[in-house]
């Protein structure tokens, strides 16, 4: 399972690198995020379940992930002149930069499971995806939606984050009461991860094809 997952991530990242020049700037952030995911996943795998090392990495990863994705939405919305979102994102960036270390060190503990920042990430990104769909819905655009890369990124984010919201949100709690069940429920996360990075791959491919 892990091999297939890494292969999908690698294919996605290689596709991003191959077509980087043809992709709009906002998709570069999504591409680098895939690169970061590869490194994080390989590192976690090599640690062979050592929670004292994996958990701090996970806390750190959540902060970089939200930074990259917020930058992605910032550049996209700036290009499309969505002033309200453009004005709001820098404040959100500052807020998460202050809040996440505080959560990690003082509320959850850096060596414990990372739940709160995951939930905040999910809520922020679901909101941004829904705003993206709403703006595209109300604007009279002439784009072919299925060959629009950012649509696939948002579709992937929305389904993944909605799908993993409960499982990841309650993961730390279940892990304490029933570790076996917590591991079994991780299948939801794994399946949705395949979907998420498949949509990223489609996004890079169809954007590159459209601009070539």
């Amino acid at each position: 399972m892990f091999g297939i997952y890494i292969t999908l991530l690698t294919a996605c990242f290689l596709c991003f690198l191959a077509y980087k020049k043809k992709l709009p700037k906002y998709l570069h952030f999504a591409g680098w995020l895939v690169g970061l995911v590869i490194i994080t996943e390989l590192f976690k795998y090599s640690m062979n379940g050592k929670k004292s090392i994996i958990n701090p990495v996970e806390h750190f990863y959540q902060l970089i992930e939200i930074w990259l994705l917020l930058m992605c939405y910032y550049v996209y919305n700036k290009e499309n002149k969505n002033e309200t979102i453009v004005k709001a994102i820098p404040f959100v960036l500052i807020a998460v930069s202050v809040l996440y270390p505080f959560i990690s060190f003082y509320i959850e503990g850096i060596n414990n499971e990372c739940t709160l920042s995951f939930l905040i990430n999910s809520l922020l990104l679901i909101l941004l995806s829904l705003l993206f769909f709403y703006n595209l819905y109300v604007k009279n655009t002439e784009i072919n939606i299925l060959s629009f890369g950012f649509f696939w990124i948002n579709a992937g984010n929305l389904v993944y984050l909605c799908g993993t919201f409960f499982q990841m949100g309650l993961y730390a709690y279940i892990l304490k009461t029933n570790p076996a069940l917590a591991q079994e429920l991780k299948i939801i996360n794994h399946v949705l991860n395949y979907f998420l990075y498949a949509t990223y791959l489609v996004a890079f491919l169809c954007t590159a094809k459209q601009t070539s």
């Binding site: 769909f133 389904v159 909605c162 799908g163 309650l170 709690y173 009461t177 429920l185």
Partner: peptide
């Protein structure tokens, strides 16, 4: 909890898919 997770996951995923 299991019911909450499964139902919540199902409903939210379905909602996301329906929106798309």
């Amino acid at each position: 909890i299991l019911i909450i997770i499964i139902a919540g996951t199902f409903i939210l995923t379905l909602l996301g898919v329906i929106i798309i």
